[in-house]
Design a protein around this nucleic acid. Structure first.
Length: 884
RNA sequence: GCGAAAGUGGCGGAAUUGGCAGACGCGCUGGACUUAGGAUCCAGUGGCCCAAAGCCGUGUGGGUUCGAGUCCCACCUUUCGCACCA
């Protein structure tokens, strides 16, 4: 901390420019080459050591990387280098999530084979990683599009099929008309395809699913064990799984020979259930409307609703039709009408609900719209007015503010949805007077006693649809035999190779289906003709277990070696974008559990620590038509962007090619070097936060490295040793401590600022004539700086005559005793206002401090003649005197 | 609508448990070195004030406390996630 009153320097030291200039572009390639030749990041997974598995989410090889992508990898590399210097046996592999739609689209558009396109991109990205100075263990590289990898995808599928966890089912699925494929629920955002943005249609199709719902409870419960995951991600997963406690209850239906089962989370309100609503898709609907009035109109309406996309269905508001039939409320024994409603979802619960309009907003709206009865069965416990009753109505004029429950429910403007102790059951027979949670408990036990149903847990999560009608993916290893039906491929027949010679004609379906050599097969059971499954797997299958493959990437016998996997996994530190909070991370947790249940691994959670870096944003420019404009065309007039006479709008958004706001790293590296980009990227903002790229801000990082460089030259040529500079040594230990803690906490921005402070202090000492005695402090600075600026620190390290890489040296350890200041500055307040400071020798006990405070003239002046009420002492910080 | 996070100089952002607000950097201002320029060096930089002293300052309004950016209540704003899940 710094004193408010700054010391004025009589003669500010004049900085003599160093004779050597900092030229990063001349040294960086040299070091990159040396690291590659020495294979510094290659690790023997069988060698003993304090293991640490670091992993950046493997990227889709889309081609060129910009500085926004760089943040993710630079961050990981800094952490990796830090852990290595601390002596950890750190594994830091990299691979490619190489299957996927863009490759296929490139093939259709530009006539390049997806494989060639993909491999070319991989080469470009690898070269970019090298130019950033990033160290990966390339001996463990994997690409999911290679048969050596995807055969294990197929093997995994067969194991899941064997266990009933992979199945073919017909269900209403999300169909993207643009990409001509089905999508998982997780890939539909606001009713649109998350890849191309086209409106998703509902289609009834036969598809392959993985039974993730069977693991819903374990995936939910497991979140509690993930102490080192961001709360936000855990919450998103929890909401996605959507665990709800409630009850299934059967309502007798006189018109049918069986009851209808509903699911409710509020069984306590069953006395207020005045009607029932079924999804139009409910299986009992045809029987119920068979002889209903206006049956044809109802059927036409059902057809309309079923053909609507989820979005259209919601936007059309609440609509329903009366079936003409009734059900019996098992508690009131009343006959209640059975309606069909577009707001009831067929996929959730039983596709049927009991409607309690007084206590559920959706039911309330529906009841209002169709004039259905509303009955209040919950009242507020505290006697407070019920907000939904309009002011001035009789309900608000009850005694002591207690609502009059006999008021006409038609006065209500919305439902009362009290869910906790603030709600009390009324008009509800055996549960009258109980607060809601107790009422739920009791009514469930009554429901179970009377055989009406049972308490149940329901999940929002639905099975994972993995088949895709696209070419560039893992073929699903199944056969359709004319005689034996669905036959799984034998394990010894794997891999089912993706044929490379297929027609890419455009949008007319999957090229695989048009490749007879692939489709036509022989059934290994009967020897007869069979047709091969032409659907390929969702690429999220590839990425749901790749982290296990990295430890034994060339194993040809097994998906991975269990012993090695059990030693290295779970991944200690996983790094990637928040966009995978649900999809990838949920699937990986699911597949890890299935592998655990197969006895292949001894853990259930794949990633111990998770870190989500924020995106990099930059200003982009839009013309009046909303098209993005290249920054090179933008002219500024009156601080407003123009292109010619057209005024443009500036918008700060995520860096992306389509928005024309990317900063290519190569230009930046050519000008300032990779170390500057690395330092700036990590200094710009806390790494989990969104950060705005500033071309001007980069200079600060460059100047900092330049100063460190020049200081190194000065120290190398420095004079004879003089007395130790105690202040510098103290600052050094404080910096070691600060940087170490901040690295562990991923607070890179403040770690770098601590290094800048140290460098500034060291710089002053050097220019004040210090020399050799500052060398130790300077070398420590190089070590601490190494994770951020590896090239410059290596060069300087060598320039000072040190042997070996900085990387092979040990991370410094702070000497706490030397961190202490000689004197402690105590702030003195009178009545909470700062009135001065006193300096006392460290360590300062209370008496010494108090004596010094009251010996101080200035403080005396504030206190004299006043009655001292209280003296507050905060060790090593301040004294506050309270006077009257 | 429900859920979560966050509001600090011109800007990005600092500030263990409440204890000297604005570290570090950008920008800006002045100076140095330069034929010149700067992505070089030095100094200054929250506001009011010529300056000092002093006063005011962490979205708004209250509260707790000797003391609040930090804790409590209400409100406003922004961002993100979910979105008829019964």
């Amino acid at each position: 901390m710094r004193l408010r009153t700054r010391e004025r320097r009589e003669n500010p030291p004049v900085y003599t420019p160093a004779p050597m200039q900092y030229r990063p572009t001349e040294i960086e390639p040299k070091w990159q080459q040396r690291w590659a030749e020495a294979r510094v990041a290659e690790i023997d997974v069988t060698a003993p050591g304090d293991k640490l598995y670091m992993l950046n989410m493997f990227p889709y090889p889309s081609g060129d990387l910009h500085v926004g992508h760089g943040r993710n990898y630079i961050l990981g590399d800094a952490v990796y280098r830090f852990f290595r210097m601390q002596g950890r046996a750190a594994l830091n592999p990299m691979g490619w999530d190489a299957f996927g739609l863009p490759a296929e689209n490139a093939a259709i558009k530009r006539g390049i084979h997806p494989r060639g396109w993909t491999l070319g991109n991989i080469e470009r990205m690898k070269a970019q990683f090298a130019r950033w100075g990033i160290l990966y263990d390339w001996s463990k590289e994997i690409a999911s599009c290679e048969p050596e990898y995807y055969r294990w995808n197929q093997w995994l599928f067969l194991q899941l099929y064997k266990r009933g966890l992979a199945y073919r089912g017909t269900a209403p699925v999300n169909w993207c008309p643009q990409d001509q494929t089905v999508l998982a629920n997780e890939q539909v955002i606001d009713g649109r395809c998350d890849r191309c943005g086209a409106l998703v249609e509902q289609r009834e199709l036969s598809q392959w699913f993985l039974k993730i719902t069977e693991y819903a409870d374990r995936l939910d419960a497991g979140l509690d064990t993930l102490e080192h995951w961001p709360e936000k991600v855990k919450l998103m997963q929890r909401n996605w799984i959507g665990r709800s406690l409630g009850a299934d209850v059967e309502f007798q239906v006189p018109a049918l020979d069986h009851p209808i089962r509903i699911f409710t989370t509020r069984p306590d309100t069953i006395f207020g259930a005045t009607f029932m609503v079924l999804a139009p898709e409910h299986p009992d609907v045809p029987a119920l409307i068979e002889n209903a009035d206006g049956r044809e109109e109802i059927e036409a309406w059902i057809t309309t609703v079923r053909n609507q996309s989820a979005l259209e269905r919601q936007e059309s508001g609440k609509e329903g039709r009366f079936t003409g039939k009734t059900a019996i409320n098992p508690f009131t024994n009343e006959e209640i009408p059975i309606w069909l409603g577009n707001f009831v979802l067929p996929q959730y619960g039983t596709g049927a609900i009991m409607s309690v309009p007084a206590h559920d907003q959706r039911d309330f709206e529906f009841a209002r719209q169709y004039g259905l009865p509303i009955r209040i069965v919950v009242k507020p416990s505290g006697g407070q007015a019920i907000p939904p009753v309009p002011p001035g109505s009789q309900a608000n004029e009850g005694q002591a503010g207690l609502p009059d429950l006999h008021v006409d429910p038609n006065d209500m403007t919305e439902a009362f949805t009290f869910k906790d102790e603030s709600g009390i059951a009324v008009n509800s027979g055996p549960i009258d007077g109980l607060p809601v949670p107790k009422a739920i408990e009791k009514i469930i036990s009554i429901i179970e006693e009377r055989g009406l149903g049972k308490g149940t847990v329901r999940y929002r999560l639905r099975d994972w649809l993995i088949s895709r009608q696209r070419y560039w993916g893992t073929p699903i290893p199944m056969l359709y035999c004319e005689k034996d039906g669905l036959v799984p491929v034998r394990e010894e027949d794997l891999p089912i190779a993706l044929p490379l010679d297929v027609p890419f004609t455009g949008r007319e379906g999957n090229p695989l289906a048009k490749t007879p050599e692939f489709v036509n097969a022989t059934c290994h059971q009967c020897g007869g003709p069979a047709r091969r499954e032409t659907d390929t797997m969702d690429t999220f299958v590839d990425s749901s277990w790749y982290f296990l493959r990295f430890v034994t990437p060339r194993n040809e016998e097994k998906i991975f070696d269990s012993d090695v996997a059990n030693r290295w996994l779970p991944v200690d530190q996983y790094i990637g974008g928040i966009e995978h909070a649900i999809l990838h991370l949920l699937y990986a947790r699911f597949i890890t559990r299935t592998l655990h249940d197969m006895g292949l691994i001894g853990f259930e959670e794949p990633f111990t620590r998770l870190f989500n870096q924020g995106v990099i944003t930059k200003e982009g420019y839009k013309d009046p038509n909303g098209a993005w404009v290249s920054p090179s065309e933008v002219e500024w007039r009156d601080e407003k962007p123009y292109r010619g006479d057209e005024q443009l709008t500036a918008e700060v958004t995520k860096m992306s090619k389509s928005r024309l706001n990317v900063v290519p790293p190569d230009e930046l590296i050519a000008k300032f070097g990779a170390d500057t980009e690395r330092v700036y990227t990590l200094f710009i903002a806390p790494p989990e936060k969104e950060a705005a790229w500033s071309d001007e801000g980069v200079i600060g990082a460059y100047r900092f490295l330049g100063r460190v460089w020049h200081m190194g030259v000065a120290i190398k040529d420095g004079g004879a040793a003089s007395a130790e500079n105690k202040a510098v040594i103290r600052k050094m230990h404080q910096t070691i401590d600060a940087v170490t803690t901040r690295m562990e906490r991923f607070e890179f921005n403040t770690a770098i600022s601590a290094l800048m402070e140290f460098s500034n202090a060291l710089g002053e000492a050097v220019h004040a004539g210090g020399g050799a005695e500052l060398r130790a402090a300077y070398e420590t600075l190089l070590q601490l700086l190494h994770p951020f600026a590896p090239h410059a620190t290596e060069e300087l390290w060598e320039m000072l005559g040190n042997v070996g890489f900085v990387l092979t040296s040990k991370w410094p350890v702070a000497n706490r005793a030397l961190m202490q200041e000689d004197t402690v500055v105590i702030a003195v307040q009178v009545n909470g206002k700062l009135r001065g400071q006193v300096e006392v020798p460290a360590p300062a006990d209370e008496k010494t401090v108090m004596d010094a405070v009251f010996a101080n003239d200035k403080i005396q002046a504030w206190v004299t003649g006043k009655e001292i009420v209280k003296k507050i002492y905060v060790p090593n910080k301040l004294v506050n005197v309270v006077v009257k």
